[in-house]
Simulated scan of single mutants.
Amino acid sequence: MQRTHSHRTVLLNEAVEALQIQPDGHYIDATFGRGGHSRAILARLSPRGRLTVFDKDPEAVAVARALAAQDARVTVRHEGFAALAALPPASADGLLLDLGVSSPQLDDPARGFSFRHDGPLDMRMDPTRGPSAADWLATATVAEMTEVIRDYGEERFAASIAKAIDRRRQERGPVRTTAELAEIVAGAVKTREPGKDPATRTFQAIRIYINAELEELQQALNAALDVLRPGGRLVVISFHSLEDRMVKRFMVGYARPVADRRAPMVEPPPALLAQLSRTMPSADEVAANPRARSAVMRAATRTAAPRTAALAPAATHRRSA
């Protein structure tokens, strides 16, 4: 029997408004999920408009392909959004990135994303590719685990958690389920944030690492500069501070001219982006969907300036562990 899990699209109307849909335009939903944003975009497109959707998750891709079978304007790519770089230059009028994990992924114990449901410790966006979280935890050194949990989870007890995982491996074998990992973390975290499970940061960190989320986000942001036409909109919804800082620095970095220090008398090239807005969910949306509470949406417009690779801001994170 096929599993069904409900999903509320975060900042649905705000994101579509920020894209400023042109009826005959080409738009990209680089994180299809269950298609909430995509369907809203399609509703504003004419019969000549086009929508390209990306997703790693086979279940999301199945939903997208069902939509494409009913609507010839939709093209589906079973890829992560780092594959945006393969699209033709200046081919899109708008690009949406809705980051993080969807409700169907969180609510399905078999996916292993949540400490609230016991299940296999998987955490892969695409469970057909690459090592699972359990595979990595079975072989990672204490130093590697500490670095990942500290850097990607911003967890101050990272070293204690990594040592506790290592002790568990030596005494009882590898950690294989979400409940086992959550129990280990709870025993290693000395103080708890009010209203937050002690395993929250560790699960976030391991998920980000396993899926190379920050590296892929940086690649997608860089690709957006090439894929968007002049005047095209870039809209990004983030759900934790690491993502939002990366998006903010990227937009700020490209929204101002960058002078060449080797040629101080030469006028700097024009900015490649114009920042537009920062939007948070309304109180009503958060009340109806508590998972929206940490969302931040940032939008920018691609200017008419030519792309210059040398101006790219440096990536703020790297997958070194």
Rank of each mutant, 00 (worst) to 15 (best):
R207K: 12
R262Y: 07
I206Q: 11
H240G: 06
A259P: 11
Q218V: 01
D226I: 04
L221Y: 03
E243T: 02
R249T: 13
G231H: 12
G253T: 07
A224D: 07
F239M: 05
F250L: 11
N222F: 06
R249A: 14
P268W: 07
L214T: 01
I210K: 15
N211G: 02
I210H: 14
E215L: 09
V227Y: 00
L225K: 13
V236G: 06
L214S: 04
F239E: 07
P257E: 15
I210S: 12
A205Q: 12
S241T: 04
L221D: 08
L217Y: 11
M251F: 02
Q218K: 08
H240P: 00
R262V: 00
L217E: 10
F250C: 11
P257Q: 14
P257G: 15
P269N: 13
E215S: 13
M251Y: 06
L234G: 00
T202E: 12
L242E: 04
A263C: 09
V252C: 04
R229C: 05
A259I: 04
I206H: 11
R256G: 08
I237Y: 11
A263W: 09
L214Q: 07
Y209S: 15
K248H: 07
F203L: 15
V227D: 08
I208C: 04
E216D: 11
S238G: 10
Q219S: 14
V252W: 10
F239K: 04
A224N: 08
A255Y: 06
E216F: 11
A255T: 08
I206G: 12
R261K: 15
A223P: 00
A224S: 15
P264T: 04
A255C: 09
G231V: 01
V236A: 05
R256S: 10
M265S: 08
T202W: 09
S241A: 15
R249L: 09
L242W: 07
E267C: 00
G231P: 02
P264F: 02
D244G: 04
P268G: 05
A259W: 08
I208L: 14
S241I: 06
P230L: 05
A220S: 12
R201T: 01
L242V: 03
I208E: 11
K248R: 10
I210G: 11
S238W: 09
M251V: 13
A212W: 13
V235C: 01
M251R: 14
R207A: 01
E215I: 02
D260V: 01
T202S: 12
D226Y: 01
P269V: 01
E267G: 03
P230C: 04
A263L: 15
P257H: 12
Q204S: 00
R262I: 01
L225I: 05
Y254P: 00
V235W: 01
L217P: 06
D226L: 13
V227H: 07
R261D: 14
E216H: 15
G232V: 10
L225T: 02
Q219N: 13
D226R: 14
A255S: 14
R245P: 05
A223T: 00
Q204D: 09
Q218R: 15
F203S: 02
R207M: 05
V235Y: 00
R233V: 09
Q219D: 13
E243H: 04
R262Q: 13
V266P: 06
R256Y: 08
H240S: 05
M265A: 13
I208F: 09
R262M: 09
A259H: 10
G232F: 11
K248D: 07
M246L: 13
